[in-house]
Amino acid sequence: MGLSKVYGAGDTRVVALDEVSVSFARGEFTAIMGPSGSGKSTLMHCAAGLDSASGGSVHIGDTELTGLADKALTRLRRDKIGFIFQSFNLLPTLTALENITLPMDIAGRKPDKAWLDTVVDTVGLRDRLGHKPTELSGGQQQRVACARALASRPEIIFADEPTGNLDSRAGAEVLAFLRRSVREMGQTVVMVTHDPVAASYADRVLFLADGRVVDEMREPTSDAVLERMKQFDAAGRRS
């Protein structure tokens, strides 16, 4: 709440987040959009504990991230947060299944087999689990990354442009999977995207400009999102 992020000082001072207060409901898919420099990626990074805020507080469930020691913050990110990045971030020497279970392996925890089976079947990669990333298409690699984020049953998943490196068909498959994970598994997903089509898969869209949330759209369509984005000028302000 009241989240602020400031870079630099004096003439070089940049306010990336300007007292942003927002919540992400359990079992909801939220897309964050805005012009370049609007603060959308900064908001996600601070909310996910990947970057520290200059002011305000961040809560994941009942845990406040502000002031956590590095080791405790690392443990919280590992146990309560799932991440999906544009670049997949898979280890090339591991199979798809080994990549999916890697965070739990590092934590010394055994995966819940029934849940893991559900996740694997939901992403549709049952017959590709023994393959390494170089033997998978881009869409399949990103679905492995999605399954990895879900496998430990995190409280929330943050996705940073998850379809940015995919063609439209593979991107649609990944977005459909994320939506299914919310609808059928009760997962909470927060996605940063610049794509109105991707945003249309979400339950709501938050629009940022100049480091502030300036609008919200429920049950978005790609046309409605595109029309709203046209209201922003090149400087990142509402016209």
Rank of each mutant, 00 (worst) to 15 (best):
L68E: 05
A199Q: 06
D210Y: 01
R179L: 11
G138E: 12
T188Q: 03
A234C: 04
L136E: 07
Q86T: 09
R237D: 12
C146S: 11
L226C: 06
T134F: 08
F232R: 04
S222I: 09
I156W: 01
Y201C: 12
D203T: 09
G186E: 02
I100K: 00
D195S: 14
I100T: 04
R143M: 09
H45A: 14
N89M: 08
A47Q: 05
D121P: 12
R169H: 13
T118W: 00
G49V: 14
V15I: 11
P92S: 14
Q231G: 12
W115L: 08
E28V: 15
R228N: 06
V14L: 09
Y7Q: 07
Q86A: 04
V120T: 11
I32S: 02
V182I: 07
A202I: 12
S239G: 15
A72K: 12
R109C: 03
H59P: 05
G236Y: 09
P35D: 07
G164Y: 01
A9F: 04
R75G: 05
V20K: 01
D70M: 07
G56I: 14
Q86D: 03
A25L: 15
H194F: 04
H131E: 11
Y7M: 11
D112C: 05
T66W: 00
R126E: 13
T95N: 01
Y7S: 09
P133G: 08
V174A: 05
G8I: 14
D105N: 08
D223A: 11
D105R: 07
E98F: 02
S21I: 13
D121H: 14
N89L: 10
R228I: 13
F29Q: 07
P92R: 02
P92A: 12
L129R: 02
V6R: 01
R13S: 12
V58K: 00
T122P: 07
G49M: 11
K80A: 15
T93C: 02
D112G: 08
L17Q: 02
K132R: 15
V119H: 00
P162M: 09
A235F: 10
M185N: 04
S168K: 10
G171E: 09
V182T: 05
T66C: 06
F24V: 09
I60H: 03
A69K: 12
T63Y: 00
Q140F: 04
F158Q: 05
R204W: 03
L166I: 11
L116E: 02
R109S: 04
H131N: 11
E184A: 09
D215F: 04
V225R: 00
R26V: 15
F85P: 11
I156D: 02
R212W: 08
D121A: 13
S137G: 13
R237V: 15
D79E: 15
R126P: 12
N165G: 06
T12K: 07
I156S: 03
V20A: 03
D223P: 08
G124I: 11
A202L: 06
G39K: 03
P103W: 00
R109M: 05
T74M: 07
E135W: 00
T118D: 10
T74S: 14
G56D: 07
R148F: 10
L208Y: 01
T122D: 10
A209I: 07
K230G: 12
S239F: 08
P154N: 10
I106C: 01
V189Y: 00
A176P: 11
T12P: 03
T101G: 00
I81S: 05
Q231F: 03
S200G: 12
